[in-house]
Simulated assay, not measured.
Amino acid sequence: MDLKEFLDYVNSGKEVESPSEVQEMFDKLLLEAIRIKSKLNCEYHTEDEIREIFAELTSQPVNGTLRLVPPFHTDCGKNIHVGENVFINSNCTMQDQGGIFIGDNVLIGHNACLLTLNHSEDPQKRANLLPSPIKIGNGAWLGSNVTVLPGITIGDGAIVAAGAVVTKDVEPNTIVAGIPAKLVRKVNEK
């Protein structure tokens, strides 16, 4: 299985059986991500070098406006898609096999955790994986220690307060907080 076939499969939302050829590709990409993350996280790099290593990790070009503060963690890297003027603060974790799509002008705080995989509820299939993408709209801001669960869309201009666990889609231009994250108010509404 090549990378394109893998991405086509996981982006289709189909269940990934364990064991399977797709699961074997997960393992292969994990080892590659560990190698590249070690290079990124274990020594000093300029901003340009960080973008270069991130491009290697994602296997796609990275625009010159990305700002990323290591350490950065992922167990794949190949299904992360980043817009213009994105800032990712330190110790962010992106479990991206299901796809992470980040719009323009997005801020992601320290220790944010974006998760795109779930397991089957059926105990007989518990090792199977269920990929589901996360989509973060333009101008969104995820505070420190935010967790975003699989299949979530965060709308344009939304703010997710520090420490929130996002279990449902977030409407554009709203502020959510808490565990689970709930609507606090609209942006700029006092």
Rank of each mutant, 00 (worst) to 15 (best):
Gln97Tyr: 14
Ala164Ile: 08
Thr74Asp: 09
Ile80Ser: 10
Thr116Val: 01
Ser144Tyr: 03
Ala158Pro: 02
Gln95Ile: 15
Ala158Lys: 02
Val146Trp: 12
Ala161Gln: 08
Glu43Tyr: 01
Leu149Gln: 13
Asn89Met: 13
Asn173Leu: 15
Val170Gly: 06
Thr65Phe: 05
Asp169Ala: 03
Val184Asp: 06
Gly13Arg: 04
Asn79Ala: 07
His45Val: 05
Lys125Gly: 07
Asn188Asp: 10
Gly157Thr: 01
Asn85Pro: 02
Leu3Ile: 11
Cys92Gly: 13
Phe6Tyr: 15
Val187Ala: 04
Ala33Ser: 14
Asn89Asp: 15
Glu52Arg: 00
Lys125Ile: 00
Thr116Trp: 01
Pro19Phe: 03
Ser59Glu: 15
Pro61Ile: 07
Pro131Arg: 00
Glu5Leu: 06
Trp141Thr: 04
Thr167Gly: 08
Gln23Pro: 00
Pro70Gln: 02
Thr93Asn: 14
Phe6Pro: 11
Gly137Ser: 07
Glu49Phe: 02
Asn188Val: 06
Pro19Asp: 05
Gly83Val: 02
Ile154Gly: 05
Phe26Arg: 01
Val170Ala: 06
Ile136Leu: 03
Lys4Trp: 01
Ser120Glu: 14
Arg67Glu: 15
His45Cys: 06
Arg51Asn: 05
Pro172Ile: 02
Val176Asn: 01
Ile154Pro: 08
Leu31Ile: 06
Asn188Lys: 08
Pro19Ser: 00
Arg35Cys: 10
Asn79Asp: 06
Gly151Glu: 07
Ile80Ala: 12
Glu32Pro: 08
Thr46Pro: 13
Ile80Glu: 10
Thr93Cys: 14
Phe72Leu: 10
Gly151Cys: 05
Lys14Gly: 11
Gly77His: 05
Val184Arg: 10
Arg185Asn: 01
Met94Gly: 10
Thr147Cys: 14
Gly109Cys: 13
Ile179Asn: 13
Val86Trp: 08
Ala140Pro: 02
